[in-house]
């Protein structure tokens, strides 16, 4: 079984992001990147499946930029003409098919069975990510990394969505720190909730 895991690099979570001079994208100078957190869970799931059923895990990374629309998986399934399922929290491989548990809204779940090959998008936090061992890191360095340039790929249709500009959001929310003794803080908080925020 071949398991392809599509991953993406993103700016580190707590990075302070600056906008470039043209206001068109972020200034990537001096910015550190890391694996997109949800993608790490997809990779972990791929490795677990390989350990249970054998096969090969191939990691695929497109880049550097995209529009950040967060729908690569589902669109890829359409292009490949294969079935897909999203927000998967459990995967069970069967003969020629796969049974997956999907997360629905409001704490509901559902099992779905699909023929293989299929495309899955994995929910974050469904497993414990393994730590990379020194040995593992060493071994990873010997793996072949194949770069595919744009002219090796079929012509892509022109994008129908244009990212015009990026800008910091206007902060509408306001943080009020309430200090004092417990009793004072509680009284002040009750006041804020009742009269300023008008909760009930």
């Amino acid at each position: 079984m071949k398991i392809v895991v599509a991953i993406k690099q993103v700016p580190v979570r707590d990075a302070s992001v600056r906008i470039d001079a043209a206001g068109a994208w972020i200034d990537e100078e001096g910015l550190s990147f890391e694996i997109n957190e949800p993608d790490a869970y997809a990779l972990e799931e791929g490795l677990l499946l390989k350990e249970q059923h054998g096969g090969e895990v191939v990691v695929l990374c497109a880049g550097p930029d995209d529009l950040g629309l967060g729908q690569t998986g589902v669109v890829l399934a359409e292009i490949l003409g294969i079935p897909h399922a999203t927000i998967i929290v459990q995967v069970e491989k069967q003969d020629g098919s796969i049974r997956v548990k999907r997360e629905l809204e409001d704490g509901w779940f559902q099992w779905v069975e699909m023929p293989l090959p299929a495309l899955l998008t994995i929910q974050s936090g469904i497993s414990h990510l393994r730590y990379a061992t020194l040995m593992g890191i060493k071994k990873a360095k010997t793996k072949e990394v194949r770069r595919v340039s744009e002219n090796e790929l079929p012509m892509l249709p022109a994008s129908t969505v244009r990212l015009q500009r990026v800008y910091p959001p206007q902060k509408k929310k306001e943080t009020q720190m309430i200090s004092g003794t417990r009793a004072e803080a509680a009284a002040r908080m009750a006041e804020v909730l009742k009269f300023e925020l008008r909760v009930k």
Binding site: V17, I19, I26, L67, G68, V161, R162, V166, Y167, P169
Partner: peptide, 20 residues
């Protein structure tokens, strides 16, 4: 729409034919 966990807002327009 928001980007990077809400750190940025981004403006998008639709170009070309077809439904948006």
């Amino acid at each position: 729409r928001q980007l990077l966990q809400g750190k940025l807002n981004a403006d998008y327009t639709h170009v070309g034919g077809g439904p948006c």
